[in-house]
Every structure is written in C-alpha cells, then in structure tokens.
Amino acid sequence: MGFSDRLMFVTPPGDEPLVVRKEPLSELTCPSCRRNEVATYPVAAHQGPRIVTKCQSCFTVLELRRPRPEEPWPPFRPAMYDAPASPAERASVPDRKGGNENV
C-alpha cells in the first residue's frame, strides 16, 4: 500500500453487496484433517488485522500473520504509516532506540 494509496480510499465499484474473498491454496494439505481445503484471506483476529491461512473444513490455522506493507489490509492505513517518529514524539525516551514497528 503505497503513500498515495493512503491519501485517497476508493470504494469498490459496482452496486452488489461486497464479500470477503477467500483465496484457495489447493497445494496445501491441512495437518489436522488432511483435506485440501486450505484458503488464505484477511480477518480481524483478536489483536487486530491479520492474514490467516486456514483449513475451511476444520478451521485449523496453518498461519496467522501481520499483513505485509503492500497488502491492502486493513483497508485504512495512515499516510505516515512507515515514517519514523520525530524527536518530539519520543521526547520521553531519548536514550532508547525506537521507531515505528511498521517500518
């Protein structure tokens, strides 16, 4: 999601109701039920936006990860998402190496 993508947000075209698309990963086998019904898709997990790879038959989670910067999830990201903190924003921790965990 580039900088310009974080300035304007375009709603999907059309009038039909929207759905969350699950991308099937037929090459993967579920380690629990051994079926080839694994899919990956964006979710809101208990700690926020995540990308899940999950068996659709038994809901075994193969992977739950943070979205990569280039992925459009969550759909809103602030414009200065990947910018470092200024000295004023971290005035109380001048000695600690820090920054934005998104960088």
Binding site: Q47, G48, P49, Y81, V93, G99, N100
Partner: peptide
C-alpha cells in the same frame, strides 16, 4: 483491545516513555 493494538502499532510503543 483492537484500538490499543492499532494505535500503539502506528505510534510505536517504544516511542512512549513514563508520563506519556
């Protein structure tokens, strides 16, 4: 629960010190 993760993830929890 969600907002704390989102807000601190954006600001950077390491950028916050005592009294911030």
């Amino acid at each position: 629960q969600h907002m704390t993760n989102i807000v601190l993830g954006e600001y950077g929890v390491d950028n916050l010190g005592p009294g911030d």
